[in-house]
């Protein structure tokens, strides 16, 4: 498989994988939580690193993924005191955790090279260089397996628990009454989202994970009024953004992840225009 194809597949898989939990985050009015957890990943990595003192340990990624639900829990703890609103709590907790991470890195991880820039920005172009080698067989870029697994996990999770996610997001009271614990589902979703963010950040960096989680979901939200269709459309836009992003980036010789994010923005702009035109036409017909 050529490097170019590998990158395109990783891009497409990553964007598609992010779109799925993004739909539920958006519907549950937790869009900015995606931004929050992608930043606190750094603290998870740092703490895990201090625990095992090995930069290539998989424990680091577990620490990173665990940080997502922990961030959400801390944010809710703060907002449950009813002293600050939910959005304010988000905007206090994640910078605090991120600051702690940066301080810990600069003070105590001086010898180990934790490249904070690449955490925040990622670089897809280098993905093909990181190979998955088992028993001497080069099975392809590691990123391919990571993004592919993430996509699979998200698809399976959403397909199996579709009705639970649907009812808990629409009416948590009813869900609780019927015996579907909103708390369990909430934190399961957060864990999956967090896992996805960790897997994705290696390719596209923290900040842009938000673009792939929320923007396609927002576009789909404007295009359809059906949850299933919304999921499919969001994934579709994710895939398209991944592919178009790659080709535009190659053409202009710029950041792949950045182009991908721009495309999600373009699609959103298109969805807004579409939505407005459609509404105008409908209200015109009614007259």
């Amino acid at each position: 498989m050529s490097a170019s194809l590998e990158i395109q597949l990783i891009a497409a898989f990553t964007a598609a994988a992010c779109a799925i939990p993004g739909v539920f985050l958006l519907l549950r009015k937790m869009s900015m939580v995606s931004d929050s957890i992608t930043h606190t990943i750094l603290l998870g990595i740092v703490l895990a690193f201090f625990a095992v003192n090995d930069l290539s340990s998989p424990f680091l990624l577990i620490g990173a993924a665990a940080m997502g639900p922990i961030t959400v829990w801390l944010t809710e703890l703060l907002s449950k005191t009813r002293t600050v609103s939910e959005d304010a709590a988000t905007g206090i907790v994640f910078p605090l955790l991120f600051s702690a991470a940066v301080i810990l890195i600069t003070k105590y991880a001086g010898t180990a090279h934790l490249d904070t820039d690449s955490v925040l920005l990622g670089e897809l172009a280098f993905a093909p260089f990181d190979r998955m080698v088992i028993f001497g067989f080069d099975l392809g870029a590691k990123g391919l397996y990571v993004s592919g697994s993430l996509l699979l996990i998200n698809i399976v999770f959403t397909a199996v628990f579709y009705k639970e996610l649907q009812v808990v997001s629409f009416d948590p009271v009813l869900a609780a009454v019927m015996g579907f614990s909103p708390v369990i589902l909430h934190y399961s979703l957060m864990t999956v989202a967090s896992l996805t963010a960790v897997g994705a950040f290696e390719a596209v960096g923290s900040v842009l994970v938000t673009a792939f989680m929320i923007a396609p979901a927002a576009s789909a939200y404007l295009i359809t009024e059906n949850l299933k269709k919304m999921l499919f459309i969001a994934v579709g836009i994710g895939l398209l953004s991944g592919l178009l992003g790659y080709h535009t980036a190659v053409l202009l010789d710029v950041s792949i992840a950045g182009c991908m994010a721009c495309w999600t923005g373009v699609f959103f702009g298109g969805a807004v225009v579409w939505n407005l035109v459609l509404r105008k036409r409908k209200s015109g017909v009614k007259r």
Binding site: D35, L121, A215, A217, D253, G258
Partner: peptide, 30 residues
């Protein structure tokens, strides 16, 4: 976006800010 569509503030914020940041990284590589 918030005024004219059903997209809420937090979603509009996340969408706009991340795509703009994406544009920023593109310009940065330039």
């Amino acid at each position: 976006t918030v005024k004219k569509t059903k997209v809420r503030f937090d979603a509009a914020l996340a969408t706009v800010m991340s795509s703009f940041f994406g544009l920023g990284t593109v310009l940065l590589t330039c």
